[in-house]
Amino acid sequence: MYTPVSVPKKSANAGRPKGKLAYIMIFDFEDIETYTRDASGVRVTALTFKADKKPIAVYATDSTIKGYHTSEGDDDARGFIHHVEFEHPGTSLEFDEFTNNNINKNLGAAVLRCGEVDAKLFGTKCAPLKMTKADTEDSKDADKNVINLATTLRTDTTGYIAKSLLKATDDVAANAELGLPAPAGSAGGGL
């Protein structure tokens, strides 16, 4: 049960933007064995994958990563909609395969900020992220993909998960960037 406590300003520069690591971890909630949050409804205490399942790492231009929640709803029905937005440079077969095969999946995403031990976790088992926008541009101005993920149901706020609870992806370079151990026998090859 949550006990109210004071919430002071964390530092003189608390509102300064925080750099994001250039990979977003994405997973299908169908691959999750256990997902739990603590009594306050914010800290994720378990995120375990079914046997032979793992998250993937998707490269995102770090300056375009936006992870946030918005509140909405009427009295006694308010909750939070999670959002993860980012751009992926280039248009490629691999990225189009990723979007084509995840457009209707129930997704979760972890966004890691530079120098922090916790990641922000978006989506829940009962209110997963949906790919609400998957646009490409191949023009004189840009060659990129724009992805928006959002929950369609209201839920608790964005979760916080200890980086030590995150399972490594299939990509060695992404794991190194994210500060995760490489899985045994891994050779890399994520998006």
Rank of each mutant, 00 (worst) to 15 (best):
P55G: 02
R43K: 15
S63E: 09
P55A: 03
V58A: 02
A51I: 07
F49Q: 07
K20Y: 06
P55L: 04
A57Y: 04
K53M: 14
T61Y: 00
H83Q: 11
K54G: 01
L47W: 04
T64C: 00
G67L: 02
F86C: 07
A46K: 14
K50M: 05
G67P: 09
K20M: 03
S71T: 13
E87K: 15
S71F: 01
H88C: 06
E72Y: 07
F86E: 04
D62G: 04
T70V: 04
F27P: 14
F29W: 05
I65M: 03
R37T: 10
I26L: 15
H88T: 12
D74H: 11
G15W: 10
T61E: 08
D52R: 08
T45D: 11
S71H: 03
E33A: 15
T34E: 13
H69Y: 15
E72A: 15
F29R: 07
S63M: 02
D31V: 01
A51N: 08
H82G: 02
H82D: 06
V44D: 07
V42S: 10
Y68F: 13
D28K: 13
H83D: 05
H88G: 03
A39K: 15
R78F: 01
V58P: 10
D76M: 00
Y35T: 03
H69A: 10
K50L: 10
A22Y: 05
E85D: 13
T64F: 04
G41L: 07
M25L: 15
A77K: 08
A39H: 11
F49S: 08
K66D: 02
P89K: 12
F49I: 01
A46Q: 15
Y35L: 08
R43Q: 12
D76R: 00
H83S: 15
D38Q: 15
D75N: 06
I32K: 11
R78G: 01
V58N: 09
Y35C: 10
Y23V: 08
A60G: 06
T61M: 05
G73S: 06
I26K: 10
I26E: 11
R78N: 07
R43Y: 12
A57K: 06
S40E: 09
K50A: 03
T36R: 14
D31S: 12
K20R: 14
S71G: 14
L21S: 05
V42Q: 13
D76T: 10
S63W: 03
I32F: 01
T48K: 15
L47T: 05
K53V: 03
G19E: 04
K66A: 09
I26Y: 12
H88L: 11
A51P: 08
Y59F: 14
A60S: 04
G41P: 10
R16W: 08
I24L: 06
P17W: 07
D38P: 14
G41S: 07
K18N: 08
P89I: 13
